[in-house]
């Protein structure tokens, strides 16, 4: 331990340097705002997926080797490194795979109404092949992993081919 003190010594300025507001004004800053705009191609698979959302339908792609149905669809299976081969319509119903009740908004403010976010695993597809979305028409304390859910769609005329064409998923009535 003695050696450590020799190396680093006591702090040279333990109380720090006192700075007043006018000191801060002496520090020069150069400000700029980036102008970076992009338009990403959605790709062959996701384009079809978004198109089908407009029709109120969920579509996936099946890998012939591992037989997983990937949602959102992809043109290749990342596990098998094989092209996916088949479009598969899914009923849209599924179960809550995981969820979280979010009490903080994007600006780090506490919100009164918590936001329910999570992952839905679809009926007709294996686990971990589902999508992220919101949950609604459910009390936070009633949301459970494994709970059966169904999509609540926007009216057809309001759908634009976006993941937001589904408003949220709600518990499925028995």
């Amino acid at each position: 331990m003695a050696k450590k003190h020799e190396l680093f010594g006591p702090p040279l300025n333990p109380l720090g340097t006192r700075l007043e507001a006018e000191d801060m004004e002496k520090i020069a800053h150069v400000r700029a705002k980036p102008n970076a705009k992009y338009a990403w191609a959605a790709g062959a698979a996701i384009s079809r997926f978004l198109e089908e959302l407009k029709n109120g339908r969920i579509i996936g792609r099946k890998c012939a080797r591992c037989e997983r149905v990937l949602v959102p669809p992809r043109m290749f299976c990342e596990r098998c490194f094989q092209p996916t081969t088949e479009w598969v319509y899914l009923p849209g119903t599924g179960v809550v795979e995981t969820f979280s009740i979010s009490y903080i908004d994007q600006n780090a403010n506490r919100v009164k109404e918590p936001i329910l976010v999570g992952v839905v695993a679809f009926d007709g597809a294996p686990p971990h092949c589902g999508i992220m979305h919101y949950f609604g028409e459910v009390k936070p304390e009633e949301l459970k992993i494994g709970m059966p859910v169904e999509p609540v769609w926007k009216p057809a005329e309001e759908r634009v081919g976006s993941v937001l064409d589904i408003k949220y998923f709600r518990p499925r009535k028995k």
């Binding site: 191609a41 698979a45 043109m75």
Partner: peptide, 12 residues
């Protein structure tokens, strides 16, 4: 331009 594929499909 490559609007027919996304960057993942291009790399694939």
């Amino acid at each position: 331009q490559t609007p027919e594929v996304n960057w993942k499909e291009l790399m694939y």
